[in-house]
Design a protein around this nucleic acid. Structure first.
Length: 426
RNA sequence: GGAAGAAUGGCAGAGCUGGUUUAAUGCACUGGUCUUGAAAACCAGCGUACGGCAACGUACCGGGGGUUCGAAUCCCUCUUCUUCCGCCA
């Protein structure tokens, strides 16, 4: 969430940013609500502090009076403190209310988009920052979509998933399962070579962790929740991995922190039904390798570019046609300041599929996480967090199957062959 | 799942018969003196947050609540850890 001090000190910037997200003047009034609630909080706190101060010094006096045998005077002073107690408890209740009010406001305010974020409110306004300039694969009329290829080679079974669990839980089998495992290993090895520390995180997180990344309360309905144990099933490795440094004050010289993790990802995808849900395009469970960095504010935007370049490298090695979009204000997720989406071309569907999203959250997550570093003056400052998919498997497999289909079978890209152990899937 | 014990500042570790505790002390860390340089020794500093220009004030001894004029200290509750028992991949 945003810092109150930022809303105070850089209000115009915040206003312009939220307008980019399509906020009306009416909606922007919440900023003034935050400030006035915070003013009130300050006033109550100052008042309460002086009451507490008075109580503490009187109590100390009572102690001394008892020790010197002046019980009468001590009992007299007790009455004075008693009178303060009511006022203090009333003040404290009020103070808690104010803080809660402020937090409730802050939970509703998304991150301020970076200046690079394009104007616009729909996905049509996303700016293509790198288009595919090669030829798009043309497979002809006999091309099969990945769900048909899945049946033909018995590598992926959607109906079986329905039987075992329900819609959106596909079962990989045979060479499909091998391909999946090969991609996981390939992506992890690449990330490790790029200097990321491999993490195997828990797949269930508590509410505090979900709050830390902004998954709560913003996306509550999108996560699976286990009521009995009050735990959330992760929608992405971002959630447990970004929480590694929650409540820490790190050394400036230790930047950047680079983590990678493979996990399955679980998403309820409530309310998203349409033509794009077929096959692997949108499922409740999919595998993803995530990269996360925690970086110094001055360097985070260079780091974002570095991460974009890294993801490009993966797609190049997989020989997949891709393009990069810079998300516009209206399409930007709640917590992000700047996001680049990667789409690969899936030739039989003749569709661009989103396979990666690389974002800089700046201080939006670290404010909730209390993830800070000491600057050269010794002052605590919030760090920046970034993350990206590198990559999301389900859709990569869809594109690989469709694009590489031949009469003889599906050709495995060169870079992947030592992981799959076969050159062709047939 | 049952029983017992524990949780204190970066770490170790006092305090826990409630009142100079502004949380002792040691280690680590930072600066200084000394030294050709280093080590050692000595001196000083050394948590986080909120309010305040500042002086300073307030809160925080696992989390929450309570008793009291006053709580690290007493009570309740939750969480985690250790040991033992049971179950189990």
């Amino acid at each position: 969430m945003l810092e109150v001090s930022r809303i105070r000190n850089e209000k115009e910037e915040v206003v312009q940013g939220l307008k980019k997200r399509g906020w009306s003047d009416e909606a922007l009034k919440i900023l003034d609500d935050v400030i006035s609630a915070d003013d009130s909080r300050k006033q109550i706190q100052t008042e309460n502090d002086s009451l507490l101060s008075k109580r503490n010094s009187l109590s100390k006096e009572i102690g001394k009076l008892f020790q010197t045998g002046q019980a009468d005077l001590a009992n007299e002073t007790k009455k004075q403190v008693d009178a303060l107690k009511d006022e203090i408890s009333r003040n404290e209740k009020l103070l808690h209310e104010r803080i809660e009010t402020i937090n409730n406001y802050l939970f509703k305010i998304p991150n301020v988009p970076n200046l690079k974020v394009p104007e616009g409110l729909t996905e049509d306004d996303n700016k293509i920052t790198k288009d595919w300039n090669g030829k798009l694969i043309n497979l002809g009329d006999n091309a099969l979509a990945h769900w048909d290829l899945a049946k033909k080679y018995n590598i992926l079974d959607f109906e079986l998933g329905v039987k075992i669990t329900g819609a959106g839980f596909p079962v990989f089998r045979n060479k499909g399962a091998r391909l999946q495992r090969a991609l996981i290993n390939f992506f992890l090895d690449e990330a490790i070579n790029a200097g990321y520390e491999e993490i195997v995180p828990p797949h269930l997180v508590n509410a505090k962790s979900a709050m830390g990344t902004g998954s709560l309360p913003d996306k509550e309905g999108q996560m699976y929740y286990i009521e009995k144990d009050d735990l959330y099933i992760i929608p992405t490795a971002e959630v447990p991995v970004t929480n590694i440094l929650r409540d820490e004050i790190v050394k400036e010289s230790d930047f950047p922190f680079k983590y990678t993790a493979y996990t399955p990802c679980f998403r309820r995808e409530a309310g998203s039904y349409g033509s794009d849900v077929k096959g692997l395009n949108r499922v409740h469970q999919f595998d993803k390798i995530e990269i996360v960095q925690v970086q110094h504010p001055d360097k985070s935007h260079d780091t974002l570019n570095e991460m974009v370049t890294y993801v490009e490298g993966l797609l190049t090695k997989l020989e997949l046609p891709y393009r990069i979009l810079c998300l516009c204000g209206g399409d930007l997720t709640f917590a992000s300041a700047l996001t680049y989406d990667f789409e690969v071309y899936s030739a039989a569907q003749k569709k661009w599929l989103e396979v990666s999203s690389v974002s800089n959250f700046e201080t939006f997550q670290t404010n909730r996480l209390k993830l800070r570093y000491k600057d050269e003056k010794g002052k605590s400052q919030l760090a920046h967090t970034l993350n990206g998919s590198a990559l999301a498997l389900a859709r990569i497999i869809a594109a690989l199957l469709e694009n590489n289909q031949t009469e003889e079978g599906i050709l495995i890209p060169e870079a992947l062959r030592r992981y799959t152990g076969f050159d062709i899937l047939n």
